[in-house]
Amino acid sequence: MSDLARVEVVGCGLMGSGIAEVCARAGRDVVVVETGPAAAEAGLRRVTRSLERAAAGRPTVAEQRAAAGRIAVTTDMARLADRDLVVEAVAEDERAKTEVFARAMTSGCAHPLGPLALADLIGPDTVQAIARSMYAEYREPLYAPPPFLARMVEAGRLGRKTGRGFHPYPGRLAGQDERG
């Protein structure tokens, strides 16, 4: 088996269920994460029906059952901690995708904050200064501050310092510390 023995699929709609099925049929251990028990059950039914509809020349009944046995469906994002590969397959909705990314970074990867929340804590202006310094030192384009970050800084969206950065921080005023 390859280095990608354990796969996680976040979302079990049409695309996610297909990805989970292909990975399971390829012999991978698959965990699918859904938003709730009803969505998890529906996703598992979708994968099972697809395996059962396999046409002639495709997997035998025994192979279909073996593939189904390699798929676990859960609502616990923390299950992705031991996965070699995580595939995001949620609805094409920015809020849903952002939620999955922030939850995956904090729950599954054991980071105390997602990367954008961390940037807000540090301050986009500080992140921009660090990027400029690294770019000046190494002249590698990948270290140059992204234009979006520069626009945020120009607009005064300095994260927790100003109450708005990548995320909003309602009730926070400039200069207010964590205790209020």
Rank of each mutant, 00 (worst) to 15 (best):
Q64R: 15
R58V: 03
L51D: 12
A54E: 14
A81G: 13
A62S: 13
G69N: 08
D84M: 09
V86C: 08
R53D: 09
V90E: 09
E88T: 05
A55C: 02
L80S: 15
R45D: 11
P59R: 00
A89H: 12
L85I: 09
E92Y: 06
A67C: 06
D76F: 03
V73R: 06
V86K: 05
V47R: 05
A91M: 13
A91F: 13
E92I: 07
G57E: 11
A78Y: 14
E52A: 14
M77T: 12
G69W: 11
R53I: 02
R49I: 08
T74C: 00
A81I: 05
A54N: 04
G43P: 01
G57P: 03
R46S: 11
G57C: 07
T75F: 02
V86Y: 06
G43F: 05
T60Q: 09
R83E: 02
R79P: 01
R65A: 15
A78S: 15
A78D: 15
A55E: 15
A55W: 12
V61W: 07
R65G: 06
G69M: 03
A89T: 10
R45N: 06
A78R: 14
G43H: 02
V61E: 14
T48Q: 13
R83G: 14
T74E: 00
T74Y: 01
A68D: 07
G69T: 07
L85C: 01
A67W: 13
E63W: 01
R53F: 07
S50A: 15
I71N: 00
R70V: 09
D82N: 08
D84T: 07
E63P: 06
A55L: 11
A56S: 10
S50D: 08
G57M: 08
L85Q: 04
A68H: 03
D84W: 04
G69K: 00
I71P: 06
V90M: 01
E88N: 11
L51R: 12
V90C: 07
V90R: 00
E92L: 03
E63R: 07
V90Q: 08
R49F: 07
R49Y: 08
A62L: 14
L44E: 07
D84C: 05
M77L: 13
R58G: 15
D76W: 06
R58Y: 12
R70M: 02
L44I: 00
G69I: 05
D84F: 03
R58E: 15
A56Q: 10
R79S: 09
A54I: 05
S50R: 11
T60C: 07
E52P: 12
R83P: 00
R83I: 08
V86M: 00
A54L: 10
R49E: 13
A72H: 07
